[in-house]
Amino acid sequence: MAHVTKAWALLLALSGASTVLSVAVARGALSGGEVTLGGAAILALAWAKARTILNAYLRLDEAPAFRRGFGLTLALYALLLLALYLAG
């Protein structure tokens, strides 16, 4: 299977997981701290999707130094979003 096709399949799986989590929260299947954990997991899944697009679709896999730089920046940004979410 081509690299971009594997990336596409992974993106679909990650998007499905995000949707399942959000539906669980919306239907009240999660409560209290579980909702917060679910939100953190949704952000982690978004971070994984963004990394996949950068590395496979935008081909940063071919440029390891840039992949590390973008990866670190993206991770720090995801942590900022997580901090703002948890503060709410």
């Binding site: 989590l21 959000s22 929260v25 919306a26 949704i42 899944l45 978004a46 999707k49 979003l81």
Partner: peptide, 11 residues
């Protein structure tokens, strides 16, 4: 993929 969870999903 960043807009979708932040605007639509996070509770």
């Amino acid at each position: 993929v960043l807009v979708f969870p932040v605007i639509y999903l996070l509770r």
